[in-house]
Amino acid sequence: MIKQLKFIIYTRPFICFIYYFVRLYSATFRLKVENEKSWQAMLNGNQPVILVTWHQQFFSAIRHFKKYARYHPGLMISRSRDGELISAVARRSGWHTPRGSSSRGGKEAMAEMIAHLNTHGFGAHILDGPTGPIGKVKPGIIKMALQTNAVLVPFFTDADRAWFFNSWDRFMLPKPFARVRLRFSDPIHICDKENENFEDLRDRLEKTMLPGLHRQTR
């Protein structure tokens, strides 16, 4: 029974259902977007941009991010079964999805993502995904920024009413008709300075991002 259920979950009709369900559910949000035009101006001026956020907060942005399909965006997603579902939804939203993580296929996916950024100049990255720990920036984003000359633009989501799952990332799911805010912060320029090594760059990004992390468990 369990094997049959798993087979159904990863079929094309079910993935199609999930995609439209997510869009319909997200349409109930009373969404407010802040500081979006500043990084779009940079992107339109041929400055590569990578949007970065925490794993717990990406759901709230899925519907809105379909609007970025015209920029040919890229997003690394793990090769797990859950990643397959997420990747399928992202592709239907117009996103290119190199598949891999630190545990499997990461080197190949990173190379593909860097090539995509060097060609199209736009992508997004989940900093502590796909398995955490929560609030820990993985080093791949630094390599990605250095090899593409991309600026990192943090974004955070919050809601006046939301559920927080008892998962490693304290996943946040806004309740129907919640007021949801999608907030973009000032761009971060990752430069390979003589007095700042790779770990310093990673640590600086992590400290910048941590204030936007939600710790609720309710």
Rank of each mutant, 00 (worst) to 15 (best):
Q4I: 11
L5R: 07
L5D: 09
Y10I: 11
T11V: 08
T11D: 09
V22A: 15
V22E: 12
S26G: 15
A27K: 13
K32N: 08
S38E: 14
N46C: 10
P48M: 00
P48Q: 03
P48W: 00
T53S: 14
W54Q: 06
H55M: 10
H55A: 07
S60G: 12
A61N: 01
R63Y: 10
R63C: 10
R63L: 11
H64A: 11
H64C: 06
K66N: 12
P73E: 05
M76N: 07
R79T: 12
D82K: 07
D82G: 02
E84P: 04
S87A: 15
S87H: 08
S87V: 14
V89R: 05
V89T: 10
A90K: 15
S93C: 15
S93R: 06
G94A: 12
W95M: 11
P98R: 03
P98G: 06
R99H: 01
S102G: 10
R104L: 03
G106Y: 04
K107V: 12
K107N: 09
E108A: 08
M113F: 14
I114P: 08
I114F: 04
L117T: 10
T119F: 01
T119Y: 00
F122R: 00
H125R: 02
G129L: 06
G132C: 05
P133I: 13
G135A: 08
V137C: 10
K138P: 04
P139Y: 07
G140D: 02
G140P: 01
I141P: 00
I141G: 01
T148F: 05
A150W: 01
V153K: 02
P154A: 13
F155P: 03
F155I: 05
A162R: 02
W163Q: 13
F165C: 09
D169P: 05
P176R: 05
F177P: 05
R179L: 11
R183L: 11
S185E: 15
D186A: 14
H189L: 14
I190R: 02
C191V: 15
N195M: 06
N197V: 02
D200H: 11
L201Y: 04
R202L: 05
L205K: 02
M209F: 03
M209L: 15
G212C: 13
H214D: 06
R215A: 14
R215N: 15
